[in-house]
Design a protein around this nucleic acid. Structure first.
Lengths: 370, 370
DNA sequence: TAGAAACTGGTAAGCGTTTCCCGACTCTTC
DNA sequence: GAAGAGTCGGGAAACGCTTACCAGTTTCTA
C-alpha cells in the first residue's frame, strides 16, 4: 500500500535530489548547497528546501557523494583481535568520535594473520577509506608497506615509518610502569618479577624496558630468572607464572605486560595454595574492563582507550582535512597511570600490623577504581 | 618520484577502468565484463585484460559500483553494546562470514539509547546497506519501525514483525536450560534459584519461562523468592545473589540468565564464606569467552556465536540475493547446550564420598570445556 | 543615473561503474 | 555464395551528487 510508489524493478533509489528540487521549486544545485550548508544561499530559500527535504524524506546518497568528492568519509581501524577485551573498548570510543565528526568507521582485525591482513587492506582500499589507524601494538612490516604506498593518512601506535602522511601515538609507558613499581616497592616488595609480551612485538619490548628502568631507578636488581617472556595471552601468563614459582627465590610480586597475562597469573596461583594478594601481588597493564571483574579486582596500569581513540581520530582528521598536512604534528602523546585495586598488598609478614594503615595510605596513589 | 604522476589537486582517483581498457586495447565495457566474470568474453581476451589489470594495479571503485548497481554490498549489524563480551565474538564471526561472501559490515551499538540508535539507523540508510541484522536480544519498537519502513532485508533474534522481508533467528533456549536444570538436579540440587534479565526484554522473559518449564518437568517447585529479576549486568547479578542469600531457605544452586550475571554472583559469593561450587553451584548463559577464565571456570549454557552469525548472514543473503525472497524460510533455528565446567558440583554433604565419581560421570554430559 | 561590485541560483560537466542495445564478425546451412 | 543464427565487443546512457562557471538581480558608488 505504500511501497507501490516506485518499484520499477527491485529496490531502486529512494528519493533523490531531483525530487527535493522539484518540490522546493529550485535547482538541484541549490538543494545540494543547502544540504551541505554552503552559506551563499538565501536563508528563506534554505528553509523552503529543508522543508522539502523533510517532506519527501530525502537522505543523500553517500556513494554518489563519495564518488564525486573523492572522499568516502570512512576511517579504517585495524586492531589485532576484536575478541581481546582491550579492543572493543577502543573501537567503541573510536567510533563515537569518528561519527561525531561525520565519519563512518570500517573495522578489521588482523588476528596476527598475514593473509587476513592483506585482504583487510585490500578491502579498505576498495572502499577508499580516507585514512587508517593501525592500533595493533605490533608493527607488521608488510602491512606498513602496503598501506604507506597508497598515500592516505595513517596513524600508528608507538612507532611508524618516517613519512609525511604518518602520525604516531607515543604511549608513555614509563610513567605508569614506574608508578606500579614504586607502588610495589612502597608496599615492601623487593623481588619483583616481570612477564613480558612476545619480544618481537615492539610494544612488548618497550614495556619491558620501562620496567627495567623503573626498577633500576629504585636501585633494585632484576635477576634474569625474574624476567619471563609470555605471549600476552592468558595461557602464556599462566605458564609464565608456573615457571616463576619454580625458581629458587620466587618473587613476591609480579608485573605483567598486559591484563590477560595477569589474569593467567591469577589462574596459575589459584591452582596452588598461594593467595593473591596475601602471598603474591599481581599488577596488570591496559586496564581492560574485565580487570575490575576479576577475583580479586586487578591492580593495573591504565592506558586510556579514550585518550588513544581521541588522539587517533584527531591525528587522522588533521591529516585528511588540514590544508597543510605536512605541518601537522607527527607525535601525539598518550599518558598511562596506575589504578590500584585489590591484587596488590604487603608481602607476607613484611610489616608490623599497626603501621600497615599508614604505609598503605602512602603506597596507594589515586585509588580511582573505575 | 612516483606520486608526481597524477596530482592535479589533492589525491584523485587512482587508476580506473579506462586505463585498463586502454592498456588492453579493449573497451571499458569489456573490462567491466571481465572483472565481473561475465562468461561471454573470449578467454584469450580475458587473459589480456587481467594482465592489464595487474599491470596498472587496477582496483574497482566500490562507490561507483554501488552507485550504478544500487547495492552497496554492506551489511548492517546492530548490537546492544560492543563492550559486552558476548558481542565482539558475534561480530567477529559475522564479519568473517560476510567478508567471505563479498560483503563489508557496518557495525553499530545501540547502548540502549534511543537517540543513538536513531542516528545509527540514519547512518546505515545513508550508506545504503543491503540488509541489517538486529542482534540486540531486545525488541526496541521504534527501531523496528524505522527499519521496516525502508524495506530492506532484516534479521531479528527471537521475534520480529510479520513482514515479507523479515527473518527471525529462533533460539531454542529450552534445550540448553533444560540440560542445565537436569544437570543440577542430577547432582542432587533441589533448591535451584533463577536470576533473570530485565523482564521487559523479551529474551529475558523467554529464558525465565524456559527455566520454569524445565523445573516443572522434574516436578520441582520454584518459590517466588527464588526468582529474582536482574539486569543482565555483573552489578545486578551481585545484588540479586545478595538478596537470595537473605531468604529463609537459600538455594544450593543458581541459574543465571546470562554470564555477566553469573559473574556477579561469583563476586557476591566471594565476599562471603560460601565457596563455589562446594557451597553453591552457579550456571551462566551465553558462554562468553570470559566464562572459561573465571575462577572457577563457569558452567554455562552455550549459545553459539558462530551459529548465530552464520544464520544471520545466510538469512540476510537469502533476502538480498534470492530471486524469490518471499519463499525464503522465515525462521532459522539456533541450538543451545550446556557446557559443564567447574562452577557446579554436588550440594554440600548430599552424597557419600564413594559414590561421587559415578554420580559425577552420570551428571556431567558432554564435558567439552572448549 | 550609469556602471561596477556583490549576491544568488541555474546549467552542465564530470566522478567510475554497469548494462542495454546494436553492429560486426564468424559459422552454418541451403 | 548468400542468408540466418549465434557470438562478441563497443558506444553510450544512466546512477546521484558536487562544483566550476555563468547569467540575472540587486545594491552601492561616483
Amino acid at each position: 500500500m505504500d511501497r507501490s510508489k516506485k518499484s520499477s524493478q527491485r529496490r531502486r533509489a529512494n528519493v533523490n535530489i531531483h525530487d527535493v528540487a522539484r518540490r522546493a521549486r529550485v535547482s538541484i544545485a541549490t538543494v545540494s548547497r543547502v544540504v551541505n550548508r554552503i552559506p551563499s544561499v538565501d536563508p528563506e530559500l534554505a528553509k523552503r528546501v529543508w522543508k522539502a527535504v523533510d517532506d519527501v524524506g530525502y537522505v543523500p546518497n553517500t556513494q554518489a557523494r563519495a564518488l564525486v568528492s573523492g572522499r568516502s568519509r570512512i576511517l579504517g581501524l585495524i586492531v589485532s583481535e576484536i575478541t581481546n577485551p582491550f579492543f572493543p573498548e577502543l573501537v567503541q570510543e573510536f567510533e563515537n568520535l569518528a561519527v561525531a565528526q561525520g565519519y563512518e568507521v570500517m573495522i578489521g582485525s588482523t588476528n596476527y594473520n598475514t593473509e587476513r591482513t592483506e585482504s583487510l587492506i585490500r578491502r579498505m582500499l576498495q572502499r577508499s577509506v580516507d585514512g587508517v589507524a593501525v592500533m595493533t601494538f605490533g608493527i607488521e612490516e608488510e602491512l606498513v608497506h602496503t598501506l604507506v604506498d597508497h598515500g592516505f593518512p595513517l596513524v600508528f601506535v608507538d612507532a611508524g615509518p618516517e613519512l609525511p602522511n604518518v602520525r604516531v601515538l607515543k604511549v608513555n609507558y614509563g610513567d605508569g610502569i614506574r608508578e606500579a613499581v614504586q607502588h610495589l616497592a612502597a608496599l615492601g616488595h623487593r623481588q619483583i618479577a616481570f612477564i613480558s609480551g612476545p619480544l618481537q612485538m615492539r610494544t612488548a619490548a618497550i614495556r619491558r624496558d620501562a620496567f627495567r628502568n623503573a626498577m633500576a631507578e629504585l636501585g633494585l636488581t632484576v635477576p634474569a630468572t625474574s624476567m619471563v617472556e609470555g605471549k600476552h595471552t592468558m595461557e602464556s601468563g599462566k605458564a609464565a607464572m608456573e615457571q616463576l614459582m619454580k625458581t629458587p627465590a620466587p618473587p613476591t610480586a609480579v608485573v605483567c605486560s598486559n591484563d590477560m597475562t595477569a589474569i593467567g597469573v591469577l589462574h596459575a596461583l589459584d591452582e596452588t595454595t598461594h593467595q593473591v594478594p596475601k602471598d603474591i601481588s599481581v599488577v596488570g597493564f591496559d586496564d581492560i574492563h574485565l580487570a575490575q571483574f576479576m577475583l580479586p579486582p586487578l591492580t593495573t596500569v591504565q592506558m586510556s582507550c579514550r585518550d588513544l581513540a581521541t588522539a587517533a581520530v584527531e591525528a587522522l582528521r588533521a591529516g585528511i582535512e588540514s590544508d597543510h598536512p605536512k605541518f601537522v604534528q607527527r607525535e601525539w602523546p598518550i599518558q598511562t597511570r596506575l589504578v590500584v585495586r585489590r591484587s596488590t598488598d604487603f608481602p607476607r609478614g613484611s610489616l608490623p600490623a599497626q603501621s600497615k594503615v599508614a604505609a598503605k595510605g602512602a603506597a596507594r596513589p589515586a585509588t580511582s577504581a573505575k
